[in-house]
Amino acid sequence: MPKHGVFAVIGGGASICLALLVALAGCGQSSAYEIPIPLPIEVVGDDYYWFVRYPGADGKLHTADDVHDTTNLHLPVATETHIQITSRDYLYTFGLPDLELNQVAVPDLMFGLKFSMDRVGTYQLEGDQLCGFSHESLMGRVFVQSRDEFTAWLRTQQFVPEPTLHERGI
């Protein structure tokens, strides 16, 4: 049974247990997580890293419950995904070679990629800063997971705040 299904069942009358399970799950949400369709994800290039933002339980980006990660991309299988890509500093390219998809990350501009991964697996994420240097930190992986696994992963990422520039040493 999906983890959010467990929450839905237990949440009917045992608040203490719910709180315990929420804590164990590393979650903080008081409601079940439904993967929004399409799934919006924001990818930001910054200092040769990709910073990835996922929607929290409200299904929207740029709200208090957003989930943040770096370098890699997690996607639910067979789910229409809309990635919005931008940059805070340089000009980057963001590529998913297995899907023959790529996009550019430009400061102050937002470009999109719309796609759906139809098979679970691990794929390449290629990044480049178009400068002649290779930046290993821009090379990542795309983890395409079952919807349950994706949701579970997302819950483990709760409360990971987006690192500040100072924390990243910038």
């Binding site: 500093d89 000009l91 501009l109």
Partner: peptide
């Protein structure tokens, strides 16, 4: 500019 080569988009 750090993104000089994206100037044609702006």
């Amino acid at each position: 500019y750090s993104d000089a080569f994206a100037g044609h988009l702006k």
